[in-house]
Simulated scan of single mutants.
Amino acid sequence: MAQNNLPKGRPLDELDVQILQLLQRNARLTNREIALQLGLSVTPTYERIRRLERLGYIQGYVALLDPRRIGQALTVMATIRLKEHSREYLEQFVEQVQKLPEVMECYYVAGDFDYILKVAVSDMDAYQQFLVKKLAGLENIGQVQSHFIMMDIKKSTAYPLDALL
């Protein structure tokens, strides 16, 4: 097995990785369906899945929604540069941005910007309102650049797991 940062205890084996791959593709698979695909019985499959959850490999299960169907057709990647970088200001920004429902994801990054936000809104007017009334109102915002997603070329939630084998 390749060197990686696995938790202490029995490392993942090929069956564990196959379970993770199956659940990444379709989290609605039942234990029985997974067991059939792996050639196992249901109980050991169930126990493996619970172990993967306990160890933190599986953090949760979600339904992926079509943003257009729920009125969130515009996705914006906003790059943020803060004015100051003291611990207090960094923590304050994180606390404030977590309260904004339009922000789907927030990344603290190295490089020209401090943060990248993935923002979902209905349209350009809604983004302008978000920018002016919410984001620009946060203390310590120095610069915001907005990048509008024109088309999804590749969009995946599944991680490659080959390195675990």
Rank of each mutant, 00 (worst) to 15 (best):
59 Q>T: 14
142 G>P: 01
23 L>N: 04
139 E>V: 01
128 Q>W: 02
5 N>P: 00
102 E>I: 04
105 E>I: 05
68 R>M: 03
56 G>E: 01
90 L>I: 15
126 A>C: 07
152 D>T: 10
102 E>T: 04
51 R>E: 12
135 L>P: 01
26 N>S: 08
11 P>V: 08
62 V>L: 11
109 V>L: 08
59 Q>I: 12
84 E>G: 03
79 T>W: 00
18 Q>V: 01
82 L>Q: 09
156 S>W: 01
140 N>I: 07
164 L>H: 10
16 D>V: 04
150 M>V: 15
96 Q>M: 02
39 G>F: 11
123 D>P: 12
148 F>L: 14
20 L>K: 02
75 T>W: 11
151 M>E: 13
69 R>V: 03
64 L>N: 11
160 P>K: 10
118 K>E: 02
148 F>V: 15
155 K>M: 11
60 G>M: 07
94 V>S: 08
17 V>Y: 03
115 Y>S: 04
9 G>M: 07
7 P>L: 03
86 S>C: 04
153 I>P: 03
18 Q>N: 12
4 N>R: 08
72 Q>G: 11
64 L>D: 01
114 D>C: 09
13 D>G: 15
164 L>D: 07
6 L>S: 08
161 L>W: 06
48 R>E: 07
6 L>W: 08
58 I>M: 00
125 D>F: 05
88 E>D: 15
40 L>T: 15
149 I>E: 09
112 D>N: 13
36 L>T: 13
91 E>A: 14
26 N>R: 14
38 L>S: 06
36 L>H: 04
35 A>G: 07
163 A>W: 13
19 I>F: 03
3 Q>E: 12
26 N>Y: 07
150 M>C: 12
113 F>H: 12
12 L>C: 02
40 L>V: 07
116 I>Y: 05
44 P>D: 12
65 L>I: 13
6 L>I: 05
95 E>V: 00
13 D>S: 08
2 A>R: 13
34 I>P: 00
82 L>E: 05
113 F>Q: 12
32 R>E: 14
62 V>E: 14
80 I>K: 01
137 G>S: 03
3 Q>H: 12
84 E>R: 11
155 K>G: 10
150 M>H: 09
60 G>L: 05
56 G>R: 07
81 R>C: 00
107 Y>C: 05
15 L>Y: 10
44 P>M: 10
52 L>N: 06
34 I>D: 01
104 M>A: 14
45 T>C: 09
109 V>P: 11
150 M>N: 06
52 L>C: 05
141 I>F: 03
9 G>R: 09
35 A>T: 04
157 T>P: 00
78 A>D: 09
8 K>A: 14
71 G>N: 14
81 R>G: 06
158 A>Q: 15
115 Y>A: 05
150 M>G: 02
13 D>F: 09
4 N>T: 09
23 L>R: 04
82 L>M: 13
13 D>N: 15
2 A>G: 04
2 A>C: 05
35 A>D: 02
74 L>E: 12
113 F>I: 00
1 M>A: 12
77 M>N: 07
25 R>L: 15
160 P>H: 07
132 V>L: 08
6 L>T: 10
126 A>H: 03
142 G>L: 07
